[in-house]
Design a protein around this nucleic acid. Sequence first.
DNA 1: CTGTTAGCGCCTTCAC
DNA 2: GTGAAGGCGCTAACAG
Lengths: 346, 346
Amino acid sequence: MTARRGGKGVTLKDVAAHVGVNASTVSRALDARKAHLVQVDTRLLVQGAAKQLGYRPDRVAGALRRGATGTAGVVVADLANPFTAPVIHGISQALRPMQMVPMVLETNDDRSQLEASIDHLLSRRVDVVIVAAARFDDRAVLEDAARHTPMILAARGIPGCALPQVLHDDQLGGALAAQHLLGLGHTRLVELRGPADIGNFVGRHTGFQRTCKAAGAEVIVLENALRPRLEDGERLANVLLDEHAGRMPTALFAHNDLLALGALGVFRRRKLQCPRDVSIIGYNDSLGIDQVDPPLTSVVYPGVEVGRRAGELAMRIAHGQRPADSGVLITSELRIRRSTARPRRA
Amino acid sequence: MTARRGGKGVTLKDVAAHVGVNASTVSRALDARKAHLVQVDTRLLVQGAAKQLGYRPDRVAGALRRGATGTAGVVVADLANPFTAPVIHGISQALRPMQMVPMVLETNDDRSQLEASIDHLLSRRVDVVIVAAARFDDRAVLEDAARHTPMILAARGIPGCALPQVLHDDQLGGALAAQHLLGLGHTRLVELRGPADIGNFVGRHTGFQRTCKAAGAEVIVLENALRPRLEDGERLANVLLDEHAGRMPTALFAHNDLLALGALGVFRRRKLQCPRDVSIIGYNDSLGIDQVDPPLTSVVYPGVEVGRRAGELAMRIAHGQRPADSGVLITSELRIRRSTARPRRA
DNA sequence: CTGTTAGCGCCTTCAC
DNA sequence: GTGAAGGCGCTAACAG
């Protein structure tokens, strides 16, 4: 079927020679945008020969010539975090119709890996970079890189950053969580906070804190999680039980479902029932979280939507349209399940 | 800090002009493998100038010249499936030290999208392709593509395929599941099978079936899931309850955790208790599956390991070492939790 | 409509 | 140890 020459690929020249025309003609005949410049019968001839010889355009050479590679960089913190995959999935959805391909790199929330990733991507001349791994102190690095290649922030924002940002409204999410718990009658609450240099967690905290304050409720302050994972949820829950035993809160807002699950496990082991003794509310509405015991109330994180919108914005930018809306906030909603209830009579 | 010229990037020539040497010298001075060919002081001069001007090598041009792009294609079925992320994570771990960058494409288990993905990747001249989305009838397409660019199969195998394969031992996994259930005393079982043209599910089925047969146990045959997701688990569980009400099995082996969770939900709604009325065993040992009610017994799928091994093999191949071991099987283990128990007295 | 020419930025001979 | 030249495969600009 597909032919091959001496170990190397078939080039435009080969096709041209085979048909007996010039390489430029082949180039034009095979480019949808220019095919009309070529006489119908030669075009057909060329297309036939191309298929017969198994010609596949070399987009590396094309990219060098044109200055556009048809690739987008995607920088994420951690692929293993269940929060990440939907975002990439959304980005991927937006790229496909534009025939763009993502290069996906992980930072592990490490600054030098972020820099290395950006370096790789810019060296490979991606047309645009989507950063879903930003921490506050990465701002200078990112803004600097953006002077060479357009960049946008997705999923994780940096306040005041000059780059376009496509974010979820974490502040609203935090407020929704607070409203729900306050509405149930809780007056002493606690937060399991994610790292303080990641916008999402700051937003969730701000929204939650502000809403609780306004209602005159008490919020116990715990240290932030180092990484918002199961183990840190366990650690913080133990701290809470050990150091605040006298004044246990009746409700807990975890900045993500993993932290919530960690806490839930510790509570169970230490004989506290949810929601009887503590109501728990998570964040992300992760897959399967409704099958947990008890099914977890959680703020929906619309990861696919965030990714898709970021991807769409990136595509517009890559194609030279610098759009007016240099910021998108995607709204939240709360999925109420059985892990939250009225507090027991005090 | 970083400089820029009239909207374009800094090139080798710019650095050369700045130092007053030839571009070849700059090229050599900045290439670790050739730097020794350059006098120490000119080398330092060049390196200084490069940094000062903010020179960043153009790997697109380099790739054209050298014939290697330093990129690997990664083809997955579905990024939103929790099974996928760990595999990519593992691949990513293997690529990083080799300074290679993955281009990640999704097929949605659709043949034409698989072909389009491969086309994209080969056009962009990736050095190697890792396919983690293979279905049995993709064999010809994949083997054909492999004549142009080295390809390997990861996570999902095709029996008898000529490409190197890095797989998990699904047959062992199915056997482990069966042994566990048989050991508990179950004699009438059922399988929630994934699609029949995906190697993993065929392997799980074979291992399970064979082990049950050898023990003389009865396995109820249900149609395969169309997609191994929650909804299909629900659908098949309903089919089971509606059509096999008279002879309900006491144990269920789901080909993945999502199918298991779907079935679990239906059973609960229809007043069957797990594990009292039905034992359930899943596959993948997904994150958080131990927090479900009841905590799910599951066969571990070592996705990160599979990805890492596949990535390592791909790296060796990309660097020209065609290795002897054209197949790797990664072992399984069972995580026993509370969703499986002895059957009730019949 | 088609051919010719001239690079895109880099790296690898081959000279010196 | 360094420079000059050529070309990877493609496409845009300019002729004809």
